Amino acid sequence: MFILASSLVCIAQSIITTGLVYLMSDFSVSSTQAQWSYSAFLLVVGVMIPLSAFISRRFSAKSIFFFSLIIFLLGSIICYFSTSLVVLIIGRVLQAIGNGIIMPYVQILLLRTIPEEKWQTYMGAYGLVIAIAPVIGSFLGGFVISLYGWRELFSFFTISAIILLVLGVFFVKDNTPTEDYPLDYASVVLSIIGCAGIMLGFTNVADYGFTHYMVILPIIIGIITLILFVKRQSKLEKPLINLSILKNKYFLVGTIFICILFACLNGCTGLLPIFMQGIAYNSAIFSASVLLPGGLLIIAFNIIGPLLTNRIGIKKVLIMGCVISIIGFAAMMFYTQDS
Rank of each mutant, 00 (worst) to 15 (best):
T178M: 05
F41K: 04
F286Y: 15
L164I: 07
A331Y: 13
Y80M: 09
M103R: 05
I114Q: 01
I78Q: 10
G254I: 01
K235P: 03
M48A: 06
L43Y: 09
V169F: 14
K249I: 02
F154K: 11
G270Q: 04
S325V: 00
I245P: 12
V172W: 02
Q95K: 05
L85F: 06
I90P: 02
V166Q: 04
A206H: 07
N242H: 12
T336I: 01
F156P: 07
G46L: 02
C79E: 09
N310K: 15
L110W: 01
G222I: 00
C322T: 15
Y213N: 03
Q337T: 15
L226M: 10
G222H: 03
L94S: 03
V230N: 10
I108S: 09
S138C: 05
F65H: 08
F2H: 11
R57Y: 07
Y208L: 00
K231P: 01
Y208V: 02
L190G: 04
I15P: 14
T255G: 02
A125H: 05
C10M: 15
F210I: 05
A206I: 09
I132M: 03
V9C: 10
F286R: 06
L43I: 12
L94T: 13
I11E: 12
Q13A: 05
Y281I: 00
C268T: 10
T211V: 04
F41S: 02
A196L: 11
L167M: 15
D338W: 05
T203A: 07
L307V: 12
P239H: 04
I221M: 11
N266G: 02
G149K: 02
L190K: 08
A131C: 09
F210N: 08
A53L: 04
S39F: 00
S146A: 14
Q35L: 00
D207F: 01
I258W: 08
I192L: 05
S7A: 15
M24V: 01
V144D: 00
G321A: 00
V189H: 03
A5R: 07
I327R: 12
F301S: 06
V93D: 06
I279W: 06
A61K: 14
P273M: 00
I108R: 10
S289A: 13
S82I: 00
T121Q: 14
L20I: 09
S52W: 01
I70F: 15
A96E: 07
W150M: 08
I11W: 12
P306I: 00
F72L: 07
F257W: 08
G222C: 00
I130V: 12
L292A: 04
G141A: 02
M103T: 15
F171H: 10
I49D: 05
A331I: 08
F251L: 13
F257K: 04
L296T: 06
V253A: 13
V144Y: 00
L265Q: 15
F171C: 11
A96F: 01
Y281D: 05
I71F: 11
F67C: 06
F81D: 11
L69T: 05
M333L: 14
K173P: 09
L43C: 09
M320A: 15
I219A: 11
K173A: 09
G19Y: 01
V253R: 14
V29H: 09
R92C: 06
